[in-house]
Design a binder for these strands. Structure first.
Lengths: 345, 345
DNA sequence: CAGCTCCATGTAAGCGCTTACATCAGAATC
DNA sequence: GATTCTGATGTAAGCGCTTACATGGAGCTG
């Protein structure tokens, strides 16, 4: 592996020497910005190819103050809805010759802050973030360093916090409305941990305010916050079912937990949707491959990822302001939720 | 956003001036390598904090020829087994102060090659790759640029292609052996596209050679290659079931397709495992949340991701050779596969 | 007290690019 | 033929770090 002499990659200087031009000309050929005599160009290109010259983005970035790097920070990849989002972002960035730095915060603001600082040190040109919930210090850090950022998965409604998202409240409302319209009143909620997840918080708020709207009081025993794991959803459902008056419907603020809940019903011999309706959130591909098929709220994860990257790149290229986008969500009615049966209440 | 004057981040020079030391001393304080007088150190640290100085990795990398960047290239994030792998890699890199460049190749060697070149331009210190199937040119490109790489998800058995993986053949063999031991002889295979996926190829080879070992001839109608989608698995199963003599067992080379297959059985009223046994591969979290629970081969995705990153970083730090690791896999017996019933044959 | 060590710090030359500015040959103008 | 213009190219000063080497003062030694 190690040669006798220290290894040195070819530099533009080497290319320049061999092509008998200056490094400036090599740079011009490579960037194709300024016109270069076709003969010279050809000569340079030949030498570049001959030596498999690879441009040094570190040096280039240092000189131009443009790294062609974008930072993407998500809370987890385990929930495949974020994976779909990340993949779409990466693809969009890639297609514009940007490279993605990936950070997984694991729902920890500390961890996220560390990632952001690290990414800024690497001179990312922009950041794509999940949710808006972070200390003011973190926002200052980005502003101070003039790093544009865009928030995803949560619509901020604030000029100074541009976002590409859907409306979590509205989306959760679609699910809850469905249940109310079908006659359900004793409705449980299973959702993510609201103290570290503002998307879950908004969905929970929608749940609570819809209850209030219908003159129902909040029953804390009907609300379970837990991790994004099938097993957590299952356990939450188990607790709900063991109540003297179990809910007739459950709104799960994500499909992972919904599938956990569904599984528990099956294990407990509780029929879905006859005895209890379950409604999910995300519309994961798996949701049509469980029994019964999951009624859920479709969220445009991939589109959001793509748009976030495109929008931030457009901003970098044109200086156009980063404005917020709100994408629609749709309730996908399948079989896991239905009308309240008389015998259930 | 835009100030009157062009924005300039604080540089080490600014810090040096204000702390009345040279940039060399600032650098020494920041890196903590060379001893610095405690008073001087404190003074510098104060100024650093006061101005929220952020180190410039581009400049630092240019000077040291070490970017603290690692490239991670996977075929997809949609199959959550790769997501788990990627997340573990990222976490391990993060914990050693490395940053991950993420590339998703979508099973395209062209795309992968582009990513690799781009990553080399960004001066990644190492690459973590999926599978060993790529043109010699791509390997040359990495070697020419002295970028160490490690192959994952496939054990190469070659010194010059270090890998952190499990043995796909062995693992697939575990599944097949289980079926043989339970009396199955007409066994179908559903797997990924072997022309773009050498992991799938190895699993298919194991399937074929186990058939041969048992004196069985390969029936092409019993083999389906398709994408990593539930729906693709479902369709493949549909075709199998519509045969005049459907297989009594199916080996699915990944859980996604296995779950698709399972779903199709349910839809077609074919009981699993009574009428047909289904065995998966990956042991995704979802596999215990489907009905019946999936018998599958557990692969150490997260551990592999972590080890790949750690091993490559150790190599960078110590120069220790990158040697290959083979991790064990285990067959997890649940309910979707069972003994051949007499009436089935 | 000359000579030596040792430690903390400074000096300055890069790292591999970009780009403002200078240069220069040839074409065009008068 | 002198002047001006134009287009292609070169020159060289950075970009913000690191680090080999130089420096200089303090503390020892004999």
């Amino acid at each position: 592996m190690t040669k006798g002499v220290a290894f040195r990659r070819k530099t533009m200087r080497d290319i320049a020497r061999e092509a008998r031009v200056s490094t400036a000309t090599v740079s011009r050929v490579l960037n194709g910005s300024v016109p270069v005599n076709p003969e010279t160009r050809k000569r340079v290109e030949q030498v570049v190819r001959k030596h498999h010259f690879v441009f040094d983005s570190l040096a280039g970035g240092l000189a131009t103050r443009r790294s062609r790097l974008i930072g993407l920070i998500i809370p987890t990849l385990i929930n495949s809805i974020y994976a779909a989002f990340a993949q779409a972002s990466q693809a969009a960035a890639q297609s514009q010759r940007y490279t993605v730095l990936l950070g997984v915060s694991e729902f920890s603001p500390k961890q996220e802050e560390r990632l952001i600082e690290q990414f800024i040190a690497h001179r990312v040109e922009a950041l794509i973030l999940t949710g808006a919930d972070r200390p003011a210090r973190t926002y200052q850090q980005m502003r101070r360093n003039q790093v544009p950022f865009i928030i995803t998965w949560k619509s901020t409604g604030r000029e100074d916090l541009p976002s590409v998202s859907f409306d979590n409240r509205l989306a959760a409302g679609q699910a809850m409305r469905f249940l109310f319209e079908r006659g359900h009143r004793r409705i449980g909620l299973i959702c993510g941990r609201t103290e570290v997840n503002d998307r879950a918080r908004e969905r929970r708020e929608a749940y609570e305010s819809m209850l209030k709207e219908h003159g129902l009081s909040l029953n804390p025993g009907l609300v379970h916050e837990c991790d994004f794991e099938f097993e957590a959803g299952r356990r939450a459902m188990q607790k709900m079912l063991s109540r003297r008056a179990p809910p007739t419907a459950i709104f799960c603020a994500n499909d992972i937990q919904a599938i956990g809940a569904l599984t528990q019903c099956r294990a407990a011999g509780v029929r879905v949707p006859e005895e209890v309706s379950i409604i999910g959130f995300d519309d994961l591909p798996i949701s049509t491959f469980v029994e019964p098929q999951l009624t859920t709220v479709n969220v445009p994860a991939a589109e959001m990822g793509r748009l976030a990257a495109e929008s931030v790149i457009r901003h970098l290229a044109t200086g156009a302001p980063l404005d917020s986008i709100i994408l629609p969500t749709t309730l996908v009615i399948r079989s896991s939720a239905g009308a309240l049966r008389s015998e259930a209440k």
